[in-house]
Design a binder for these strands. Structure first.
Lengths: 228, 228
DNA sequence: AGGGCTTCGTGCAGAATTTCACAAAGTTAA
DNA sequence: TTAACTTTGTGAAATTCTGCACGAAGCCCT
């Protein structure tokens, strides 16, 4: 194999690039033309060497002794993340969250226009949410094909989420943003990102409790150490 | 130091425990009494050895040749995650998302009741959202103290998010769930989890583009390999 | 009781990620 | 031009995470 696939960027770095991009956009908006890895690291809350290594996966776009150009780096990160084009999104599930996503205008300007919303509830089908009308989930396949949708957002109830995922995959979707608190069964050829506030809160809870236990054991002089 | 702090669970494992808990709750609801690491691994989409290792951080609660008891493991995970008590949440920012969080009844039953919502906009202060009234952000400190709030959710505009974080920390909050697309500057004694749909979409975009490039280079016979 | 079967718990090796540390390469100023 | 200074790019070490492989331990059946 002649290494025909592009140099792969480590997953951990891919997850940080959008954060850097966000920060660089802010810098650009405040007329900052250049930045050093130290500055970006401080703004992103990470180590400067990590910033340099992450950016080096894009290519050698820095100038030693000077730093990086904001606009040029924005361009490179966008290119690498696939943000030079738009990716159409369809929402499955016209509940509170689904409708909010459809109405929320914040995604289109960032390259992810929501072009459709579907549901299986006859009462919801036909209703308007923002500029879109809720259509029948049975039209999903046609909708995905006609509007060239690549990303599906699942905002159904937990019990309907798996069949929503099945329908999306059947329709040819290859990226899913899942808001239901369930682990979807999906072929490995499809990407999934889970957004679960319950999980986030529980992780915070763990570290919160950790802090409390530590300060407890510090305040009472006798150590309550547990023998290993 | 006599190792007074409890055995630390690796961060990666901490992030998976809530997912296991979710699955076990489902099993419990369907009257499943026992499970093996293989079964849980399949449901969680991870390796069975990883499941066993993760659960072993809680203690040796399995029975060889049999598996784990659902209810007992639920109890142990809850204990470890600090879910034997409630953690009160205050929402900062009474916009669309903030109000939705305040109204949404899904957190209280899972141990994270939203007990307050604040804003700095005089037009919003005093309005009702669900069972709560929006109060002045200047009351935050008192609110946090009186209601024993430990978690703050930031749902303000991006420009107001940092000062919201400052106010929360000033008020004594030590865990923050941040929905604004910005990296908050925070002391290391405070935990933060970021929920940023833009970031998630951009990560999906990367892998989507990756797939397209790969199938492109496969369909055309001449390799477009880039010399390293 | 004992053999066969199942599944846990975990040592260890390998992979992935992070961080350090420094040569390379550029700028600036005299 | 040269010396002093800054900042990148990247080997290599350190750390964290993953997954295999297998001994240990319990159940079931005869």
């Amino acid at each position: 194999m002649t290494h025909s696939q592009r140099r792969r960027i480590p997953d951990a770095a891919v997850a940080r690039l959008p954060v850097y991009l966000q920060i660089l956009n802010n810098l650009h908006a405040t007329n900052v033309a250049r930045f050093s890895s130290d500055e970006l690291a401080a703004l992103a809350g990470v180590n400067a060497a990590k910033v340099r290594k992450d950016l080096s996966y894009l290519g050698s776009y820095g100038t030693r002794g000077v730093g990086y150009e904001v606009t040029y780096l924005i361009h490179q990160i966008r290119r690498e993340l696939g943000l030079m084009r738009e990716w159409n999104v369809v929402v499955v599930g016209a509940g509170n969250l689904g409708c909010a996503l459809a109405k929320f205008g914040g995604f289109a300007p960032r390259g992810f226009p929501v072009v459709g919303i579907v549901d299986n509830d006859p009462k919801k089908i036909g209703q308007s949410t923002g500029a879109l009308k809720v259509s029948d989930v049975r039209n999903l396949q046609k909708l995905v094909k006609d509007l060239e949708v690549t990303i599906g957002a699942i905002t159904t109830s937990t019990s309907a989420a798996q069949s929503a995922a099945d329908a999306l995959i059947e329709a040819g979707i290859t990226s899913i943003l899942n808001f239901a608190p369930i682990v979807l069964a999906i072929p490995s050829s499809v990407s999934v990102r889970n957004v679960d506030l319950g999980v986030e809160l529980q992780i915070l809870s763990y570290y919160e409790q950790m802090r409390i236990e530590q300060s407890d054991s510090k305040s009472q002089q006798k150590s309550n150490a547990v023998p290993v």
